[in-house]
Design a binder for these strands. Sequence first.
DNA 1: CTACAAATGCAACAATCTTTGCTTTAGACT
DNA 2: AGTCTAAAGCAAAGATTGTTGCATTTGTAG
Lengths: 184, 184
Amino acid sequence: MSTNTVQKRPGGRSAAVLNSVKVAVEELVQEKGRERVTIPMVAERAGVNPTSVYRRWGDLQTMINDIATYRLDPARPIPQLGSLKSDLTQWAREIVEHYRNPTNAALLRGGAASAGETESDCTRNRRAEAGMMVERYGDESPVTPDEVLDQLVAPIIYRVIFLPWTLDDHTADELVDRLFAGRG
Amino acid sequence: MSTNTVQKRPGGRSAAVLNSVKVAVEELVQEKGRERVTIPMVAERAGVNPTSVYRRWGDLQTMINDIATYRLDPARPIPQLGSLKSDLTQWAREIVEHYRNPTNAALLRGGAASAGETESDCTRNRRAEAGMMVERYGDESPVTPDEVLDQLVAPIIYRVIFLPWTLDDHTADELVDRLFAGRG
DNA sequence: CTACAAATGCAACAATCTTTGCTTTAGACT
DNA sequence: AGTCTAAAGCAAAGATTGTTGCATTTGTAG
């Protein structure tokens, strides 16, 4: 969405710096994993002075979180295909697809390290989206938003973090099928 | 279970160093979060020379992974209460209880940051344990090991990492109930 | 297009982390 | 006990990271 650090000059050179830093972080996190990336590394890769990075973000975690949410929240529209099951299937497919990109997966893992204290943007949005889809189909919906989180989002994210090679083209559909098995 | 770095002298002073380092890491990770812990910090808290830590583990991530799996695998026996559902309930309760301890949760998050390339000990053991419990009750078991991972383990771990405040005394039971709802 | 000020760049400094060669301590085996 | 040597401790050097004051560039408002 937008940068945490509010810039009074969002355009021109500042924007260029932001972009090259963003690319550099994504590349490096994917190459080496969150733990082996440092600010001087990022700055060098980005062709930017480390001072600029320090002054904008202060530390690496802040920067990574900023850049991760940036990527994760592309104002994507919520599916609206006519039935809850098809909406959830579409939605889950998009999430799986997003995280099958190794860069996105690496950023998620990096964010996990500092999660848990405050509800991250990424998590909050998921819950909100699930709620919107479920509520669209009235109160007698066969599944609750919490069930969507526990049985659809959680398995996907768990696999992204710990078992990424188990994600394939059918994962989303299988999970939705299981979620609906025996009800609605 | 045991230290990655094979020690030809596991006892005496080496064991004492390992123990105090272990305690120091746990305390510091809980106090400051994985991101703000360094090897010199750990060494000082442990009353040990930093060199010893560097020589044993090489870097912080290796050390944390080592110590985390150490904690996670206390050769705990697998529940055997007479029915698959009660076994899984007991097992899930133990996992929830384990991770409601903030130190264990912090170590999990720290490990997540470097997961995904190789199947971590912690993950492998979970899958193996699930398999053992399911297989004990024959082939017509109502749930598969994969379902246990997706619908029981994944929601717990997801909550531990991103929504720790949602873990309570009933979480394990509710998840198992849902897993069995509409089948066996 | 001018002037103001925000953001970057630079350079020197400070602090911290990591490595290395050597010495000392103390497990483990006989 | 005595010997051997793995592992820990120590200290100094080296590398990397983080900070700060000041000069330079360049968005942006008027």
